[in-house]
Nucleic acid binder design. Structure first.
Lengths: 338, 338
DNA sequence: GCCTTAGATTAAAACGTTTTTATTATTTCC
DNA sequence: GGAAATAATAAAAACGTTTTAATCTAAGGC
């Protein structure tokens, strides 16, 4: 049934040489007579020989592949991130291998199971203990969802805390005092940091936060839509402004408001994070904190390759964003009147 | 430097049994005394043993992973597709492993190099000869970018030809005669089929096509924007309607027109393919052909697993879409006047 | 109590490579 | 022209598993 696969042995037999010679010819170890090398290569090609990677990686454990372990690829944020990472890997001659997984075991088993030379991890489900195991095994890793540094593991993150501060300050400067917040997932680095920065800044400014105005949108458009819709329907007093944990949430939020006849930014200001492409041509164009996703992706790969090649040790890099002002926020009406 | 990895041998030594016993215990081969099994498992856990996948797959070549070989993940279309595929794999206990590659060699080498049990291929760069090699090797494969069937390879495609016919008929019924077209990539199945269906329908209706109205937008928003912008700037007579090869192209097209003061659908009708989420809330909401992406993804995985498990042979499945009428098309003004 | 059988475990072969070491053939040196 | 160095190739060990075949021990059968 199963067609017998052509192995290095077959090539050796067909070419009339030993398997070591074939291996050397194929891997460019410059020790062979040019004629034999050429001959072997020709035979290998004729037989359509393709090396078994399991055999190969079993012996010489450099796979030349880096693994990206991520919980989801959905949405424009990951689009950009993955694209940047992929391009950068290609540039350096590494293969990228993406694993979508919420299950930390598949990550562990693929990383420690030596299918990759190094890993990029954006997977909050890998818990502290497993991270420790990875560090102990001294496998090159870059985290983009947590701050974690060792000799062989680095972190590249967006300075979300600073982002949270920025949006809070911006809204405060516009005269807003009653500010709501739509969180994403409260176990995610970016969500935690953004919210923390926001709250801290409010506190510094002596402005209170009404816990009733804290919604949850799971970084998604639909969930945010529902949450906001429900809030409005409940008849509670609307805040002057709302911070959304990411642009997608802001979009869901604005759509919900719109469906209830509430206008942005006239009746309420909305501000968010990421600056995805869509935020520019959504109506209204979103005021948002630019997240340098592409640079983050590039740096991640560079950092990882540095560790893999033994050139650098793990370190923490925190990338700064900047506020992109568009049309979704306006001065507080009360301030205007005053 | 490199920390020595714990292998099955270490577990065996520590547990005071042979490596075969460890292997049997770990893989649930029911031949061991329950007590030994339990003991071995406990030791393995204590040592944090994780099997080397290369060693494992070298011997017993069932990897329980399926590979997705795809040229790009960018854009909402692939978002949905990959998400559907991923969920379906998980459902059946298979690991999904995504390779972004324009380079057919990495695909070939990973598939024939036995890192996967089967492959889903959406990669036009894999040429006919290599496809033949894959079929000859009898490796389970499902193509979603071409029609190709053998005992171990299947195809699941969207009926793009029919889609092309549908949009053409719809525009003709609205009274349009001078119709333009924005193609994607003319080596891609969906692009070829859509355009062919469109042209054939025009011909049947006795309506000519002006080759000057054929633009190229590479399935992207930006490229389409530029192409349309250039067309308008050139001063050529605008068609009554334009078919865009996908929604993203339509969006770029509409934005370009808008920037030149041309209104959709008042001045010109735009129709496209895919029905991505965005098409609903873009302004104007797009009239487009619904592409059952999620069903396509599910069917792909089911089909592949059927082949892997030897239950089914390869077959061709062609999924039908349907026109979703929104606001980007209108009756031809000339018809109205008449 | 001996022989067979079943149950439990182990030893050894195999998977397809790379790499280290060994072998053979050729050249260089004086 | 023989020893030593060099070049070219091959043999064998190793990587970490699974699996097949072999061994050992205890249990039954008579």
């Amino acid at each position: 049934m199963k067609i017998s696969k052509v192995t290095i042995k077959d090539v050796a037999r067909e070419a009339g040489v030993s398997i070591s010679t074939v291996s050397n010819a194929l891997n460019g170890v410059d020790v062979l007579h040019p004629d034999t090398k050429e001959h072997v290569l020709k035979v290998a090609k004729r037989l359509n020989y393709i090396p078994n990677l399991n055999g190969k990686n079993l012996k010489s454990s450099a796979t030349k592949v880096i693994g990206l372990f991520i919980t989801s690829l959905k949405g424009p944020y990951y689009d950009q991130l993955v694209d940047a990472i992929s391009k950068e890997c290609e540039k350096f001659g590494y293969e990228l291998n993406i694993f979508i997984t919420k299950n930390d075991r598949t990550a562990l088993s693929n990383i420690l199971g030596k299918r990759v030379d190094g890993a990029i991890i954006s997977n909050e489900f890998i818990d502290e203990m497993d991270v420790l195991a990875l560090e102990k095994a001294e496998i090159p890793i870059v985290f983009i969802d947590r701050e974690r540094v060792s000799k062989t593991s680095a972190s590249v993150v967006f300075d979300s805390y600073k982002g949270g501060q920025d949006v809070a300050r911006y809204l405060i400067n516009l005269g807003h005092k009653n500010i709501g917040y739509i969180r994403g997932y409260d176990h995610l680095y970016d969500d935690i940091e953004r919210y923390a920065g926001f709250r801290a800044t409010l506190e510094e400014a002596g402005i209170g936060f009404n816990e009733e105005n804290l919604l949850v949108g799971y970084f998604e458009e639909d969930a945010s839509f529902s949450a906001v819709k429900a809030f409005v329907k409940s008849g509670k007093e609307l805040p002057d402004a709302i911070v959304a944990a990411n642009d997608l949430s802001a979009i869901g939020c604005i759509k919900a408001l719109k469906s209830e006849g509430i206008l942005v930014p006239k009746d309420i200001s909305i501000i968010s994070f990421d600056n995805i492409d869509l935020s520019e041509y959504f109506s209204p164009p979103l005021t948002t904190v630019n997240n340098p996703i592409i640079r983050l992706g590039k740096l991640t790969v560079e950092s990882l390759l540095g560790i893999i090649q033994g050139k650098t040790e793990g370190k923490l890099e925190k990338l700064q964003g900047s506020l992109v002002v568009r049309d979704s926020c306006s001065l507080n009406k009360n301030v205007l009147i005053r």
